[in-house]
Structures are given as structure tokens and as C-alpha cells.
Design a binder for these strands. Sequence first.
RNA 1: GCAUUCGUAGCUCAAUUGGAUAGAGCGUCUGACUACGGAUCAGAAGGUUAGGGGUUCGACUCCCUUCGAGUGCACCA
Length: 699
Amino acid sequence: MNFIVDATIKAAKLLYQTDITAADVTLQQTRKEFEGQVTIVTFPFVKFSRKSPEQTGTEIGAFIQNEVDVVAGFNVIKGFLNISITDAYWIEQLYQEISSSSFGTFPANGQKVMVEYSSPNTNKPLHLGHIRNNLLGYAVAEILKANGYDVIKANLVNDRGIHICKSMLAWQKFGEGETPESTGMKGDHLVGKYYVRFDRELKAQLSPILSAIYDKKDFTLFNSSEKLKLQTHIGTITYLEAAINKELIVIKLLDFSDFGSRAQILSKSAIDKNIPWKSVLKCFDDEEFENIEEKVIDKKKKDLQRILKHLTDLEEKIQKEKDEIKDVAQNKTQLLIQAQQMLEQWEAGDTEVISLWETMNSWVYAGFAATYKKLGVDFDQYYYESKTYLLGKDIIEEGLAKQVFFKKDDGSVWIDLAADGLDEKLVLRSNGTSVYITQDLGTAQLKYNNYSVDKSIYVVGNEQDYHFKVLFLILQKLGKSWARGLFHLSYGMVDLPSGKMKSREGTVVDADDLMDEMEQTAKTQTEQLGKTADFSEEEKQQLYYTIGMGALKYFLLKVEPKKRLLFDPNESIDFQGHTGPFIQYTHARIKSVLKRAGFNFGAKGTDVKELDAVERDLILTLSQFPEAIMQAARDYSPAIIANYVYDLAKTYNKFYQEKPILKADDEVVKQFRLQLSAATAKIIAKGMRLLGIDVPERM
RNA sequence: GCAUUCGUAGCUCAAUUGGAUAGAGCGUCUGACUACGGAUCAGAAGGUUAGGGGUUCGACUCCCUUCGAGUGCACCA
């Protein structure tokens, strides 16, 4: 629609002697209830036209109609100038632009971009959170490719550290030589099993230490600074408990009967400290509230929450203190000491440890490879943290020389980001070893050295927002020219109704399990519809996989990345409505019609002169595909593509329902509608491919 | 406590980046030629965009503030 913008600029110059740029012209699609396809917002022009928005719109409209021959007419409603483009133009668009094979892919722009995603730890299998990460990363890479970038997909594997040592140690102690072969388990699951085992054993070793601290006030295991720390935390807990007791005096006088009989019982047991106050809030789940209006319950809930807020806050603070104590105490367990030793041995290059590490990692990699394959994602470049964790020290030297960093008396190196609203941040330990951010500084440099990329995208969860903010800021302060091209694609966590997923506690939705379940659901649904009678067994399996993964992928990608996602394992992912299978179905149906017609794509030329509203809408929607691709790349948001494709499928279905294709009265009209259908199927397939979703020919 | 993200129909999500009467799906209710493929289509009901202020021709969108939810604030990674 550039010609409309150009004409508007010309209109401003000739009618009002004012120079404006393309950015000053707000173009949007005309709302369905008005006539026309393109709308110019005229309010901004009033300043220099010195006329009412309506009059300005009328004048510009008349000018544009006169200037551009494909403009058939216009109308002005309030400050909105709606322009109608001729049907001939839209038909031309369909045949020339939309149907061309290059539609929706931009020519190479000469820029390189690296997309780092997945980045798993090698001590446990992938879960739903990783799936979101992988799909986002893959889709963003595909979208950038379509925009003309040269894309490198990278995976920074976190293959070293205390977490792997935990799995290794547990396997060594309790594994009895189990292997993926001997157990028939996928390697990553086997290693994950021992990670969970470690945690269980650790808890067992921890409890006598904790009881020594709490019950006997026995600190013999700890050195003086640890002892001081523990005593401080215990002091705080005592203080918080006193605060609770004080609060209880008031609470005891309250009558909870307002909130039902369940609340009375629960509050009594909370007063006796048998249950936490937090669980008193669950009293509304009781059946006595079944017949009461939700609004009333909501109000009561809020009232109760307010009354108990002090207590629940205090409880939370106590929990935090206890966690701190646990952290200190844990370091005295035999298991954790051994795991630490193992890490040191690894760093020292101990052959036995290294060999165990290599073996267990190889199990995990085989498992990951299977999961990645099923998920349909891949990588061009692997980085391993075991190789990069020592990087970054030369950057520290560079920073010190440039006086971006400073050294404290104990030898540790810091950067002061107070001027940027952040804190002081450690970049090198006093013993000269790297911290997390040191490695990341080094790895960023390495990536640039390897590929001289113009942009580098990190697909990492939003819990690391602060880390990346600091990382990028440091690189900018060091004067790295490429630091401007760094971007943290931060996405929200995937939560379960019960809260956060924690692999140690077993509250995770496993990636492999979930994919299998989706396939199974697809099978059940398809069999119910009974449309696959003539499919071979292999075709069926392929179809269930395509549909199941389509549902899952679409479900995760249609939501804006930064929003957190709630996944309820008890509610299966839909196959109807705003879903992947809906779009896949639309594609399959078009293919079926085309096949019946024996349609030959690319056969040119018809004499259709006029379009019906639904046909025009469809061409209009199709023509917006490149814009959606650009926008998706600019915002790094596959959700834009997902919503566009849905909109397209929906628009097509409306057309399909209203207009006969094979039974069209006229052969010319029939050919035209076939062309329109074929173009739609192609764009749907292309759009879905950008999301990593395949569309079946039949389903 | 400080920082940061989010809050839109009962539920899950949109809203062309500051534009018109805030749109879809699920769920509920009502319809669609003996299906060009019904995993579809048409219609109804459902909203004080968490509350309050401000900026302006115009605010879901920007600013301030209150409330609520998440996350981060280690010489861990």
C-alpha cells in the first residue's frame, strides 16, 4: 500500500504546502462495518490543514482518487478516510503477487543473526518449560530467515557443574551399574532418575543436622562465621514467631463463623499451629459454598485474606529464613561435600570422574536428540559450557584497563552500575575464578568472533531478565560495537495449577510424556471422526503425530512470549476453535477440493471482473502475510504469525461456506475461486511452517 | 524492602504499537441445502479493559498512584 502513502504525502505538499514523511501517515485496514479496504487517519493532518478532520479527509480523498487510478472511491467518517481499491487491483494482486512462489519470503539482507535457544542442563530430561523455549527459538529463527537474515541456530549446553555431579554421585552410589541399555530407559530419564534420588538421599542426611540446629542449638559442625549466620536467622525466626503470637491474641478473639464452619475448624487448628494459616484460605472450596453466588464468595475471600495477611506474610518470611538455614546446613551433608569434591576433581581433570561424566552425558545427549527430533527442532552450532566456562577472563583484563571494572582489596573484580539504576555486580571472584556472568561475557565474544553476527538473540526465561540486562550493559560499557545487536527474548514461565514446576520434587510435565499424550489424543479424536479408513497404518501414525504436535505447538506459540502460561494437565489441549488442528483442517479441506477439481496451480488468466465481499476480504487477508512476517521478526513474536494464520483460515472458511467452488455457475468463476483456494492453502502451509508446524494433505 | 513483568467476557487469548461501537475461541443457548470434507459456518447472551488520577482531538496502550499475581535481588549456574 505504499502508493497510498506516497499519494498522501503528495497531497499534503500540494494541498497544504507541508512536507510529511511516510511515518506521519497512519494506515490501517478498514473496519469491516465500513466501505473500503484502507483507512487513513486524518487527525494528525488537521494541524497544518487548519480544517476539520472531515473536510481534510474529503480533500485528501479526492486528491488521491484523482491521483491513483486503482482507487475506486472513498468515504469519510469522523476523522477516518476510507479508501476503496478497485477489484481489478485485488485480482491482479492475487495472480501476480500472492501466487508467486517468493511471496512471504524476503530477499537476503546480508545480515547474520544467531538465535540461541534450548540450552539445557544435562542432569535431567526436558520438560514443558523447555518445549516452550525450543519452539520459540525455532520459530523465531524461521521467521528471521523468512525476513532475509542468515540465521545460525545455537545451543549452549550446560554440561558441567554441581548439578551434574549430583546425578553422577547418586548413580555411582546407588546405580548398581544401570545403563540405558540394561533398563530400557531413555538416557536423559535415567540420569534424571538419579538426580531425584540424590535429592531424596540429601534430605535424609539433612534432617538430623537441622534438628541439631533447631532443637539442640548445637552448632559444632559449623565454623564461627557460619554459626553467626545461623544464629542470626534463628534470631529472626524467634522474632517473627513472637510477632505471630502477638497477632494471634487479636485473631483468637475473632469469630470465623462468617466464613463458614470449615473456616472455624481450620482457624482453630492454625491457632494450635497444626496447619499454616495459608491453608485456612482453602475453606471456600468446601461444599457448603456450592450454592452461594461467586461474587459473595469472592468478597468473603478477600475479607478473609485481608484479615490473615499479616499472619501469612510472617509465615512466608519464616519460610525464607528456614530456607537460608537449610542452604548452610546442606553444605555439611556428606553427599553435598562429596558432590563438591567431585566437581573439583572434574576441574582438575581426574580421569575417572571425567570418564563417568562423559558416559552419563552421552546417555543424556542420546535422549535429547530423540526429544529434539520429535519436537522438530535442530541446531547449527553447539557450544558446551565445559569448554566455555573459563572464558571471559581476558574481558575482565580489558575492562580493568578501560577502568570499566574496579578491583577490591580482596582481589575480586566489580562493576558499579549504580548510575544506570542497578547495583554493584561481581564479575570475578577474589580467588580469580569465573562467575556465571564472566562466562557469558566470554561466550558473547566467542560468538561474535566465530560468526561476526549482526544480531544475537538469547531465548531464555524471564527469571534471568536482570542477568541479561547487566550482561548487555557491561558489553556496551566496554565499547563492543556489536553489543547493540544483543537481545534477550524473555518468555514467561509455564505454570501448573499447583504452581511452579520443580524437577526435584517431581512436579513436572515431562516433554516426552506430553508429546506422546498429544499423539494419543489426536488418535482418539481422529478415530471418532472416522475419516481415515483408507489410510495405511504408517500414514495414520504420521497423521496422529502431525495433528498432536500441531495442537501442542500452536497452543504454546499463539500466546505472546512474555506472558506466563498456565497449563492444566487435566484439561486436554483443544482441537477445535482457535487451535492448530483447526488450521490444519482448513488446509486439508482445500487440498481435497483442489484434488477433486484436478486444479493445476499457476494456470493463469481469468476474466473475473468483480469480487464478492468475502472474496475481497480473503485476498486482502492474504496480501497482509508479508507484513505479518515483518512484524513478527521485529517483535520476535511467533504469536503474530499464529494469530495471522488463524485469521486467514477463519476468513477462508467463511468464504468456503458462502461461495460454491466446484459448483460455481461459471467456469471462469470456478477457476478463479480455485486459484484463491490454492493460494490460501499455500500461505497457510508457509505460515505454519514458520511455527514449525506441518499441515497434512488429508486428515 | 528494592527492582522488574503482568492484570482485558465465567475460562484461554487478540486488539494493526495512541485511533472508529474493545474482537476471537472454549463453555452456555439457537440455527445451517440429505456435507464441493460438520475438526466447519451463522446467530444470541456475556466488558466500568483490576481501582483511582493525569497527559490529548482521541487511552486497553503513555505517566503517576493504590490493589493483586509472578519473577529477580549469592564470591550458585
